[in-house]
Design a binder for these strands. Structure first.
Lengths: 346, 346
DNA sequence: CTGTTAGCGCCTTCAT
DNA sequence: ATGAAGGCGCTAACAG
């Protein structure tokens, strides 16, 4: 059995029937007797037959492939999401092509082209920090290829999204700090073209308002939220004319950068300044308990988005109704940083 | 231009030539006049023609798809490697199917089946902790589908590998600790069916020998190296009849678990006990400088392995000569934990 | 150099 | 319930 080259015709010839019957049997059509079906399936098994998807897909002009675009695969949130995508996709008989935009719009545009060339049946995407509009997604619309935004989306006409409730999480984070007695809470915010950062900011503002804390514009520090930005933010923060006692960071990396710097300056955390940060990386769980995190359910996001996308693919080009699913992140205040690193689906 | 349905026949008809000429031109064959080539390319561009890979691949009976099997996508080492795989693969015109074994042999076996069914042109794999032999890879061998192990391999007959020099790294790590004045160095080792752990252990033993330090069997603690194992190891370590002053951990997660526990017990790091750990996760870079890490070049591993695999695919079933490439990891002693988190290709 | 012919392996009308 | 026939879109002989 050198090179598996068995086709439906081989089976047909051996069984002295037509290949179309074999094809039907293999597809479990109800227009074949159970008896012949059994016979065919048995022979197929015996010969080690494997359907040639290339041929099948060509005929059906479907690829059973999904495209996934993320800013960066190795970000924990995204690799977890991808894990969820893969799992769901395979269960439903789809393959997945994964691409990274590296936060560049130009690359994102090219990737869309590649995915079109590969005739994917649908696309999942989390846009880059540079992405403001979705002109580069027109090709998908034109060819009726459904796509679903996850985590980072574009706030535009009827698209499907699977998002985290950033507003609520921002509110909870701020409320948590207020509950700890913080009076002057700085917010490390991200690029405002991304909805997630807008919403986290909104949550922050709401909490201040409800708890009747005066809002000061200079307490909002916007950056791209890399670790070095956290350090810079921390420096800025120390020069403010208020005694800062809380930080709500829109991600954990910047939060950690800031914490490192502040500790070097002899500031105690959380005694002097309490910190809450969105958790993109598992690091947050391992750093000392002084960082309270908002954990994002990456795996679940991936699963949910994939399920939604595939359902849209199945609906077909009929009446692609857009849908937005919002998942809840969890505020986690650690008593101890010792938690099971391997647990769950991470 | 509703649904892009332009084929080479359309172009041929419009230009009043044969579709085979169009095909040749599109494939940049040297058996077409430059003039007609230009004409065809221009028209193709104008009509927005895109080659149908399904048809092309069916005809050539190649999928231009690689399978990648890793224990877990969201592990930083693997997601970095995958990033490298993707980049290289796309450049060479290949797609990538990514699968997770979740450290289970059974899943690994199934995945191989799936990849075979998908007719991948080659496979990259990093075996699960449960994988002892490679019976489940027979299918690949039989059908002459080349595969390359990366990072975690099976030490068996002529296969291709892209590995890290674990022996040397283990030696360096131990030497580093000895250089710090450590006399009693514990080694947290991993499952011995994996070569990587065997080799790290060998490096440890060699360094002890060369520096004339007595080897004690009870200083080697074997586990699956999860965080909780690190804690357990730390407990064991404190009960040893020697004053332990150094730990060489075969991964960072266990190292961190141990460090957390030891610090709770009032032990100072690195003053009382110095720790060196292999770095699978970026966390190691952010945890305080007390953990010296051995950084593994995941991205480069991915790139290298892919290049090797594709070259084997191109060589064809002729004389698939196996090759092993060994990359050097870096021992990184941090002065400050503040390093650029976003840098490089992570 | 270009055209003709013949499939790759499968699925799907259309007959019977 | 099964068979016959054609074609998805492309490529690779083989001619000329």
């Amino acid at each position: 059995m050198e090179n598996n080259k068995i086709t439906i015709h081989d089976i047909a010839r051996i069984l002295k029937i037509d290949s179309s019957t074999v094809s039907r049997a293999l597809n479990d059509s109800d227009r074949v007797t159970q008896k012949t079906k059994d016979k065919i399936l048995a022979k197929a098994q015996e010969l080690g037959y494997q359907r040639n998807h290339l041929a099948s897909n060509l005929r059906k002009s479907k690829t059973y492939t999904l495209g996934v675009i993320v800013p960066r695969i190795s970000r924990h949130l995204f690799s977890s999401a991808i894990a969820g995508v893969e799992e769901t996709a395979y269960k439903m008989g789809y393959n997945v092509i994964i691409c990274q935009s590296l936060e560049q719009l130009e690359r994102e545009r090219n990737i869309v082209g590649t995915l079109l060339a590969n005739r994917v049946d649908g696309v999942l995407l989390s846009v880059s920090m540079e992405t403001i509009n979705y002109d580069h997604l027109q090709g998908l619309k034109q060819r009726n290829i459904p796509f679903v935004f996850f985590d980072r989306h574009c706030n535009i006409s009827d698209n499907s999204n699977v998002l985290i409730d950033d507003y609520q999480a921002g509110f909870d984070a701020t409320e948590h700090l207020i509950g700890q007695g913080c009076k002057h809470i700085v917010h490390f915010s991200g690029p405002q073209n991304l909805e997630i950062y807008k919403n986290r900011l909104k949550g922050y503002l709401s909490a201040l308002q409800i708890y009747d804390i005066e809002f000061r514009k200079d307490l909002i520090i916007e950056s791209r939220l890399m670790e070095i930005d956290g350090v810079e933010n921390a420096k800025l923060l120390l020069e403010l004319p208020y005694k800062i006692d809380g930080i709500f960071s829109a991600n954990d990396i910047a939060a950690i950068g800031a914490m490192q710097y502040l500790k070097q300056q002899g500031i105690r955390i959380p005694e002097d300044i309490a910190v809450v940060g969105f958790s993109n990386e598992p690091i947050s769980a391992l750093i000392e308990p002084s960082l309270t995190t908002i954990d994002q359910p990456g795996f679940k996001i991936g699963k949910t988005a994939t399920t939604l996308l595939i359902s849209q693919i199945h609906e077909g080009a009929t009446k692609m109704k857009s849908e937005t699913i919002i998942l809840k992140p969890n505020l986690i205040e650690r008593k101890s940083s010792l938690r099971k690193f391997e647990s769950g689906n991470y």
